Amino acid sequence: MVENRPWLTFLQHFVLLCGVALVVFPIWIAFVASTHDGRSLVSGVIPLLPGDLFFENYRTLLSEGMAGSGGGPVWLMLFNSLVMALSIAVGKIAISLLSAFAVVYFRFPFRMFCFWIIFATLMLPVEVRILPTFEVVANLGMLNSYAGLSIPLIASATATFLFRQFFLTVPDELTEAARMDGAGPFRFFKDILVPLSRTNIAAIFVIMFIYGWNQYLWPLLVTTDESFYTIVMGIQRMVTVADSYPRWHLAMATTVLALLPPVIVVVVMQRLFVKGLVETEK
């Protein structure tokens, strides 16, 4: 029997509202700051209500960009971050699907040894192998390029492991039926495994897109040309200027713009993302 306790319902909603407020309040402050002038933000008192410079600040930001702050146009940095994030997400999914498919459905010498070698790379994030990776990229002439930004970050042991675990749950009857119908390995992979992995692909895409979008250290090392700066690098350069106060209103406007693509991806793919993380029935 489920008891009706109004006070408990109120307490639950109160805790949820407090949690939402803690998450939303910094975003609200950033948005409010982007609608005021720079002098209002360095006075020591942060306003809590939007100002009347919303359109002017964002128009200045998108037209002049980071003039005087050592960076390029904001729209170009957003485009660079989008290309990098999409390349990393799509590349990780494609390579991980193929590697998991090979490990599960093909029999070759040292198959499991190769898988555990891939899995062991989880202990070696890009920050640990940053110097040899940079040397390889530099020797290949991929500095200041989209290939240099994305290719070294494409391999993913996490996605390979998740796809492998999913493929192991696929009934053997599907494999036998595909073989009896004359389907080869690639057709079985394309027509059966990939559609069944739709929710898993969506979940990994969201995670990897945000991972690629938020990259800072690697783009900082491989880009010296302003035309390849990412939006995260742009925000850092806007708040670290010499001999003057940071233009906080434009920096906060840039932060708001940088927040929009990941939010859009999460909102659009929320249902598939949740299903990909919690779904157990295939």
Score class of each variant (00 low, 15 high):
Met1Gly: 15
Thr9Ser: 11
Thr9Val: 11
Leu11Ser: 15
His13Leu: 10
Leu17Tyr: 13
Cys18Asp: 00
Cys18Thr: 04
Val20Phe: 14
Val20Met: 15
Leu22Arg: 08
Val23Met: 14
Val23Ala: 12
Val24Thr: 12
Phe25Trp: 15
Phe25Ala: 15
Ala33Asn: 14
Thr35Tyr: 05
Val42His: 09
Ile46Cys: 09
Leu49Ala: 15
Leu49Gly: 02
Asp52Glu: 15
Leu53Asp: 10
Tyr58Trp: 07
Thr60Glu: 12
Gly65Lys: 11
Met66Asp: 11
Gly68Glu: 03
Gly70Phe: 07
Pro73Arg: 13
Asn80Phe: 08
Ala85Leu: 02
Leu86Trp: 01
Leu86Glu: 05
Ser87Gly: 14
Val90Lys: 04
Ser96Arg: 02
Tyr105Met: 06
Pro109Trp: 07
Arg111Val: 14
Cys114Asp: 06
Ile117Gly: 10
Ile117Tyr: 14
Ile117Arg: 05
Ala120Val: 05
Leu124Tyr: 14
Pro125Glu: 09
Arg129Ser: 12
Ile130Val: 15
Leu131Val: 15
Thr133Trp: 07
Val137Asn: 03
Ser145Asp: 14
Tyr146Met: 09
Leu149Thr: 02
Leu153Ala: 05
Leu153Asp: 05
Phe163Gly: 04
Leu168Ala: 15
Thr169Lys: 12
Pro171Val: 12
Glu176Ser: 07
Ala177Ile: 12
Arg179His: 04
Asp181Met: 04
Lys190Ala: 11
Asp191Phe: 06
Asp191Arg: 15
Leu193Glu: 02
Asn200Ser: 06
Ala203Cys: 06
Ile204Arg: 04
Ile210His: 03
Tyr211Arg: 03
Trp213Asn: 04
Trp213Tyr: 09
Tyr216Gln: 02
Leu217Met: 11
Trp218Cys: 02
Leu221His: 03
Phe228Cys: 03
Tyr229Met: 12
Thr230Asp: 02
Met233Trp: 01
Met233Phe: 01
Met233Lys: 01
Gly234Pro: 05
Gly234Val: 01
Gln236Gly: 09
Thr240Cys: 01
Val241Pro: 00
Ala242Phe: 10
Ala242Cys: 00
Ser244Gln: 13
Tyr245Trp: 07
Arg247Asn: 13
Met252Glu: 07
Met252Asp: 07
Val256Thr: 11
Leu257Ile: 09
Ala258Arg: 00
Pro261Val: 00
Ile264Tyr: 04
Ile264Ser: 05
Val268Cys: 08
Gln270Val: 14
Gln270Lys: 13
Lys275Ala: 11
Leu277Tyr: 06
Thr280Asp: 12
Glu281Phe: 07
Lys282His: 01
